[in-house]
């Protein structure tokens, strides 16, 4: 369970994020939507203890992330290409992550089996280093890397951007399956309202660092979110 208490991040005089209280229970697939600069990546960076909170804290199963490192055993993430090791082949990258999560080579090979069609023959045994793969393929490597060892909590920043349509569909299916069968908690941020509403059972909307909406997904959610953004654009035009 993730508990966010009174967290804020201030750069200079600019408050980029402020959330009073947010609790994400185990097994939830949590969608985070908002425009650029809404604070999505900031929130994930705080959760992963990559930046220091100005106030407040984030707790995972009772451990404050900026105080001890127990959370590292439960969480894996793919935020951007700084989570990739360019000079490794994809296989070496997967084995490396597997090793850190207590998986041996055979386990990892086994696990990768299910992604054969996901990789479309362009990643495993492709005789390329990660740095030489296309952006889309790098993304696939990063996402699959985050899944290795079936961690309890998986954080993905913009997982659908740059992915081809077939892979988007496969990824959505995987997220749904894992939340149902394995009780994995997914935290996903996206600009794409349709994808996010499809895979998330709860959606939080951030705007300029503030929590605007916190909704349990229903068939009407997509419409509600689209209306919000449409209205905010209209308001700007009027102003």
């Amino acid at each position: 369970m993730i508990s966010i208490q009174n967290i804020s991040k201030v750069y200079g005089t600019k408050k980029v994020l402020h959330i009073e209280n947010l609790v994400i229970p185990k097994g939830e697939s949590f969608g985070l939507v908002g425009n650029n600069g809404a604070g999505k990546t900031t929130l994930f960076s705080l959760l992963l203890d990559l930046i220091e909170p100005t106030t407040g804290f984030i707790e995972i199963d009772g451990n404050k992330v900026h105080e001890n490192e127990n959370w590292k055993k439960q969480v894996s993430a793919f935020i951007d290409d700084t989570f990739l090791i360019g000079y490794l082949t994809p296989e070496e990258y997967f084995y490396f992550l597997g090793e850190l999560r207590g998986q041996n080579k055979a386990n990892v090979d086994d696990f990768l089996q299910q992604f054969t069609d996901f990789f479309n023959g362009e990643i495993l045994n492709a005789k390329k280093y990660v740095r030489d793969l296309s952006k889309g393929n790098q993304k696939k490597v990063g996402i699959v890397g985050a899944l290795i060892g079936t961690p309890e909590i998986i954080v993905l920043d913009e997982p659908f951007a740059n992915l081809d349509p077939s892979t988007q569909i496969k990824l959505k299916k995987l997220i749904k399956d894992w939340t149902q069968n394995e009780q994995v908690t997914f935290l996903i941020s996206s600009h794409d309202l349709a994808h996010t509403t499809e895979v998330s059972n709860r959606i939080v909307l951030l705007d300029k660092g503030e929590l605007i909406k916190d909704i349990i997904t229903t068939p009407e959610t997509l419409k509600e979110l689209e209306d919000f953004f449409a209205h905010s654009v209209e308001r700007e035009i009027v102003l």
């Binding site: 992963l48 203890d49 990559l50 490192e69 590292k72 055993k73 969480v75 894996s76 993430a77 935020i79 700084t82 989570f83 990739l84 090791i85 360019g86 992550l97 850190l100 999560r101």
Partner: peptide
């Protein structure tokens, strides 16, 4: 350095 965030979020 180019993948330091990865190292910092793994159980290294």
């Amino acid at each position: 350095s180019s993948y330091y965030p990865l190292m910092m979020t793994q159980n290294v």
